[in-house]
Design a protein around this nucleic acid. Sequence first.
RNA 1: GUCCGGAUGGCGGAAUUGGUAGACGCGAGGGACUUAAAAUCCCUUGUCAUUUAAACGGCGUGCGGGUUCGAUUCCCGCUCCGGGCACCA
Length: 795
Amino acid sequence: MHKKFDHISIEQKWQKQWKEQRIYDVGTRDKKREKEYILVEWPYPSGNLHIGHWHAFAVVDIYARAARMKGKQVLFPIGFDAFGLPAENAAIKHGKNPDIWTTENITYMTKQLESMGNSFSWDKTTQSTDPEYYKWTQWMFTQFFENDIAYRGTAMVNWCPGCNTVIANEQVHNGLCERSGDEIIRKEMPQWMLRITQFADALIDDLDTLTEWPEYIKEAQRQWIGRSRGAEIDFPLSTGDSVTVFTTRPDTLYGTTYLVLAPEHDLVQKHKASIKNWDAVDAYIRATATKDDVTRTKNEKEKTGVCLIGITAVNPANGESIPVYIADYVLKAYGTGAIMAVPAHDERDFAFAKKYNINIISVIDSETIDELPTTRVGVLKNSGPYDGMHSEQAKKAIAEHVGGRLTNTYRLRDWSIGRQRYWGVPIPIVYSPEGVPHSIPREHLPWHLPTDVDFTPTGEPPLAKSSELKERTERIFGEGWTPEVETMDTFVDSSWYYLRYLDTHNNETFCTQENQDAWLPIDVYFGGSEHTTMHLLYSRFWHKALYSLGLVAETEPYRKRVNRGLVLGPDGNKMSKSKGNVIDPDAQVTLLGADTVKMFLAFMGPYGEPGSYPWDVGGIAGIRRFLERVNGLHEHKISTQENTETTQLLQKTIQKVTSDIMLYKFNTAISALMIFVNHAEQHGLSHDSYQTFLRMLAPFAPHLAEELWSNEGNITSIHNELLPVADVTKIITKRTTIGVQINGKMRGTVEVDTDAPEEVVFATVTQDSLLNSRLTGEVRRVVFVPNKIINIIVQ
RNA sequence: GUCCGGAUGGCGGAAUUGGUAGACGCGAGGGACUUAAAAUCCCUUGUCAUUUAAACGGCGUGCGGGUUCGAUUCCCGCUCCGGGCACCA
């Protein structure tokens, strides 16, 4: 009977020792070794590590450890993204400062993280709430402000009149505020913005340089940015000025029979006096304002709008007078907030024109007979001098003819980063007595978050209630100066943390050029698919903005990106408290051990493919059984010569395991380890093979591998060893089994010498009485693939 | 509606520059050990039919076609599921 697998004492013992000896610290860059910067999305300190965190960090640790055991210098940092709403809500609920709540959570979760036994680079940790961190978030903002990347603009927001504040999209239900029940008004408000749209082309085009990103992630970003190529065209109005529309189809300009403005369009208010049916128009504008995007798309199957009586426009192509409408199917924030409507060639315009009896003129003669509307391109008709021209040429020709400007428009909008919240980075701006914004000079950074603040919601931004902040501003900048009272969106904090990890304690700069050169780019970034278009795009933008200011040397931060799958509850549903299907990792670790939990999560399915995997109670027991057998494997060591098969299998296992790890296919790597153990238990293995196996096991079950390694009398850590390298010469086998097909159907196998030629294999088949009995008639053709298959076509 | 994934045993999943489908694990059934149970170990396990049996055969990777000596893999047309986006001009 072998020694029991006492995971609790083994794990405690080695975690303590690793921590004391700091074996996973990276220290300074050692140029003699290749580097590998492995990044995992830093967690929010919600209070408890859930199974998703384990899936995110413990499984990636296999990859990190393997890289280290390949002799690389590995940076595998972890930190906390600690600003945000939950802390503020908890603070409101418990009357505690968010700082205390956050710090307590971080302390607890750090302990939980240590129980994972990960090889994190604990000497490189940081957190977004540390003033030494947000000092640089603020500094970068001031650089952006001074270079017109950050600006004071306006954005459409959900305004709750009851709460007297801006409400996030997810807090609006059926047009009503989740908290107060008041009807939400969509309105434009002044906001701090970042010019992400200025980088839209680079954000799309540079995706082509990211050759190691999965295509589906790049495609998601392209779609999110939503670049449309088209033209801006001016339509003169009867009021004397003009309206600019954006269109992707300038070739259909002759078919334009009306214009539509977004109800919120500036020109509507401007020409209030000229609009004869103002009451109806005004009512429509007010009705639109109460609709958030969700209800607008749900309930608005039918197109609605109001004609602006008293205002007409001129189609610049043919000089004809056309009516002007407002309609909520045109959005203020997209394009120019106004469209030229071509009912013959746009489905929405068609439905609208039918309803309001507007002219429909077809200007495209497509090859096939289409019912209107058709959005096809084709040869033009009813288009004056352009009749007979093809759409593609006509787009440019007609746009130029009417003085239009070829341009792109994007679905992506500028990033609004101001939040009327307490628990965030204060926006480092002060206003002069005249109300002009100025960035706060570097010597006053960090611009501390004040603590004399009542953060219970009243509608007023919490920072506006701080007398300390007010006094501080006047003391430094002079009487009458006032502070900005908004804080930043937390996506800002996480847009550059990968840079701070490289230089966590630097007081002079966010990260030295030397450290950047030493570690960037990030070799692989592991994360959740929910961040594909938000965080991942924001941080790429942030990096490009820094690049445009000469603060970083490369245009892209992440060389590879891997999105992991999702762990579901045992019932196959998403884990949630209300469903009672939540698996508590701490309980599993106590019961079965950290190595078991980690290996089970790795064994569930291929990492890096967007699947979802139910937690299988029997499955984790199977992993535990496997580790117990590994724990007893030393009893199968033999002092006599090892079986050749065992030697070969070991080499094959090394090959399989090491290559699978690099492909994030930890599931099949573990399967290969199991196959080896099954074999070794039956046939025995040498001392050398045993130790080689342990080194392969080390990334997967670091505690157990260390224990068994030390039991072998080794005095240094197994995690400072190198991964075994397969000896290919030992894998070559003398005999090979070849599949035999007759007329394309599998009929059996034959064993021949490896690399045997066709004649030999064929002869072997004919010597097999069963196979030979099927070879009736004339052999017409033989297809032979060496060492794999022979297919004999008869008759 | 649209874009991106996906569909393989009772379950999670293996295997694709087209070449022996179902590795590994779970579950299930049978057996050994035990007074008994747990644990452990051994055997069986895609499906259908035939035979006393060893065996051998038919079918089989969502559905219907196609290309090929050979298709889970490639092509065409569907169905269903998951995720993203959605009046985008």
